[in-house]
Amino acid sequence: MLKKLIKVIFVVILLLFFYYEYKYFTFDFMYKGDLKDGKPVVSPNGDYSAQIYYENYGGAAGGVNLIVNIINQKSNKEQTIYFSDAKGNVILNWKDPNVLSVTNYDQFENRNVDLIVGKEIYDENGGACQHYKIKKQYVCKDKDSI
């Protein structure tokens, strides 16, 4: 009887975990303050702007993550479209009203990618690409697919 109860509790906890992962996992990083870099880059038609954020990790021996968020100017909703290790040379450029070109490279690595706003995201290591909700909603790119 006790073993059966433990199994039921375990299954319920597991189901709650999967529900939480599906319902609440997003690819959004909302960093504010000193981590913001420069002014937003506005799309040609003014519908979107792109903002660069940096996040330090790992202390003295760590590095810096690069996060690019898109802001919908009509709804003022902010959404992450790009997440990678910052390589050194970072430039945002709009190729057309819905395509953002993210240039992120150094002499050793290149993480440049063009992304269709609202349809594609980039996660360098592909962790977000493994989530069902993200796979269902976006074309997810990683360092192996560019």
Rank of each mutant, 00 (worst) to 15 (best):
I9K: 03
L16P: 00
V8F: 11
Q130E: 11
S101D: 10
D114S: 11
D123Y: 04
L100V: 03
V102T: 04
Q137C: 01
D34R: 00
D37T: 14
L115Q: 08
I146G: 01
A61W: 10
V12K: 03
F18D: 00
I6E: 05
V8K: 03
D85S: 03
R111W: 00
D142W: 02
L16V: 07
K4P: 00
T26G: 07
I81E: 01
Y57W: 15
V68E: 07
Y48N: 07
D47W: 06
Y53T: 10
F83C: 05
V64I: 14
I67K: 04
T80M: 02
V113H: 12
Y57L: 06
K7F: 12
V113C: 05
F108K: 10
S49Y: 05
G62V: 04
I91K: 15
G63N: 11
I6F: 13
A61Y: 13
Q79Y: 08
I9L: 14
E78D: 10
K143P: 00
F25A: 11
N89R: 06
E124L: 15
N45Y: 08
I146L: 08
L2S: 14
V117H: 06
K119M: 07
I116W: 01
F10K: 06
Y105M: 07
D123G: 05
Y82F: 10
L5A: 14
L16W: 09
G88E: 07
G38I: 04
L115W: 02
Q79L: 01
I52W: 04
N112S: 10
N45R: 11
G59Y: 09
A61M: 12
Y48C: 09
C140E: 01
Q51T: 13
V11A: 15
G63I: 11
V90I: 15
K77V: 13
Y82D: 01
P44V: 02
P40D: 09
I6V: 15
K95Q: 09
S84M: 07
Y54F: 15
I6M: 12
K32L: 13
G118Q: 09
V113M: 14
Y24D: 10
K74C: 01
I13D: 00
N98D: 07
V11G: 05
L35P: 00
D123E: 07
W94L: 03
R111P: 00
L100T: 02
V90D: 03
Y48A: 06
N110K: 10
